[in-house]
């Protein structure tokens, strides 16, 4: 992929809709399925990923000319791990309230496929500026996907949203279990694809 020709807003929306990490690229499914049991979990993991993605993308874009091509993947992993550790430590030290909520999510991020993939396909070929917008878009896309999944699963599984009782009963406890995450992802993916088809048909027709 040569250097991108897209403008910054295009890069941003590309991550949220065009190449949404969960629904279009189908990357990082383990956390998406495991964590998205409530909207709050989705939001917190999304924010954590957003920060790590933006920082890592910018770092790699800045040092891309110094990375030996043979060891680029270890370098990416190192960069992500460094940022995850730094964010984890800083949160624990200076924002203990947020850390209580987000601590476990931040530590999960090192193994996320989506971040490594964005570094490999985008950040190592583009400028810092473009990588920043791409990282922001991908992070927001992930956040949006996690929250959408969390919304459905929390509402159907526990009858609550953000912990507040909405329905007053638990319709299908099944939705809290990891298996249901796959169903939700499947249905939403189908929805996304259908919308894309419909939009394209309209354009042509």
């Amino acid at each position: 992929m040569p250097a991108t020709t897209k403008t910054n807003p295009q890069l941003l929306f590309n991550g949220i809709l065009g190449e949404n990490p969960i629904f279009r690229l189908a990357l990082s499914m383990c956390p998406a399925v495991g964590i998205s049991t409530t909207v709050m979990n989705g939001l917190l993991l999304g924010i954590a990923v957003l920060f790590v993605q933006v920082f890592s993308s910018c770092t790699i874009a800045a040092i891309k000319n110094h990375i030996h091509p043979r060891i680029r993947i270890p370098t990416y992993t190192l960069t992500i791990a460094t940022w995850v550790t730094v964010i984890d430590l800083v949160l624990a030290a200076y924002v203990p309230e947020a850390y209580k909520q987000m601590g476990i999510f931040v530590k999960l991020i090192v193994a996320f496929a989506i971040i490594t993939m964005r570094l490999e396909t985008f950040a190592c070929k583009n400028s810092v500026n473009a990588s920043f917008w791409d990282g922001l878009g991908m992070g927001l896309g992930f956040l949006f996907g996690m929250m959408a999944l969390g919304f459905v699963r929390e509402l159907l599984g526990m009858g609550t949203l953000f912990g507040y009782d909405i329905l007053g009963f638990r319709p299908l406890l099944f939705f809290i279990l990891p298996v249901a995450g796959f169903f939700c992802v499947g249905f939403m993916m189908a929805m996304f694809n259908y919308i894309e088809l419909a939009v394209n048909r309209k354009k042509r027709g």
Binding site: T85, V86, L89, A92, A93
Partner: peptide, 11 residues
């Protein structure tokens, strides 16, 4: 990087 951040934030 990680070491220095750790030293700064540890306390």
């Amino acid at each position: 990087v990680m070491g220095s951040v750790f030293i700064i934030t540890d306390k």
